[in-house]
Design a protein around this nucleic acid. Structure first.
Length: 245
RNA sequence: UCUAUGACACUUUUA
């Protein structure tokens, strides 16, 4: 069964949905009982396809068969709902899991925060951060990055930088994605000097810019028509062998 | 310290 689960994961990554179904059916045919990993992976597969109804059905099915969903199972579904913009359902699931004595973890919250941010509900996202700390969880760099990119997308640049300061004060280290989000935010507003400042800052703290980083910085240069700098960056990328991820 | 879940532009796939 462990092997089947690993196989399902690989197929899910490859988006081989028909094979996912086949393997799952084979598990059943072989009279093996899918475990919580199998079900969670299947739910992930449905979510990734945007087939939320079937994902939810799978949740009921596992419960009916006496396999209890855990935090990961719920997180998977919550993430799926958030990505589809069904925040009602997502928060409903959060309540359901709480009702079963399953405490949402930092991943549950960051999925919810992401959903709120993607739907321009920034103040609620911020409130969720307060809740996170109230329940004794520690916000991490992913959570903050999610918030930062949410605020940046709404053009709330100062707020985004405040969040960056806030996380650093708490001892949470920004990573490449954090900087990418910041750079992207200032770049779309054409703030070249801010973008390059961030680029040097991330280097100073030992972070390696990746392909996305360069893309965002180049965007800001392009907005100012500074093509020389763009080509310089392209050269630099080649020198550093930055491969498209 | 590893069978499953969260964040950044573009592209591609699922449709």
């Amino acid at each position: 069964l462990r092997c089947c689960n690993a196989l399902l994961k690989a197929l899910l990554r490859a988006n081989s949905w028909d094979m996912v179904g086949t393997v799952y059916q084979n598990i059943l045919d072989a009279k093996m009982a899918p475990d919580v990993y199998t079900y969670s992976t299947m739910i992930h597969a449905y979510c990734k396809q945007g087939r939320l109804e079937e994902a939810k059905k799978m949740l009921f099915e596992m419960e009916a068969k006496g396999c209890s969903p855990n935090v990961v199972t719920y997180n998977t579904l919550i993430t799926g709902c958030c990505r589809k913009g069904d925040l009602k359902e997502a928060f409903g699931l959060k309540n359901t899991m709480c009702g079963k004595g399953l405490a949402p973890d930092i991943l549950s919250y960051s999925a919810l925060v992401n959903g709120l941010c993607k739907n321009q509900r920034l103040s609620e996202a911020r409130e969720l951060l307060v809740e996170i700390e109230n329940v004794g969880l520690k916000a991490d760099e992913v959570l903050y990055t999610t918030l930062i990119s949410g605020f940046m997308k709404e053009g709330k640049i100062e707020e985004a930088f405040k969040l960056k300061d806030e996380m650093m004060v708490k001892g949470i280290k920004p990573n490449v994605v954090t900087f990418n989000s910041l750079i992207h935010g200032v770049s779309r507003r054409g703030k070249v000097q801010e973008a390059t400042k961030l680029l040097t800052e991330m280097r100073e703290i030992g972070l390696r810019p990746n392909e996305a980083t360069y893309t965002f910085v180049m965007e800001s240069y392009c907005k100012e028509g500074k093509m020389d700098e763009v080509f310089e960056l392209l050269d630099e990328m080649e020198r550093k062998n930055i491969a498209p991820s």
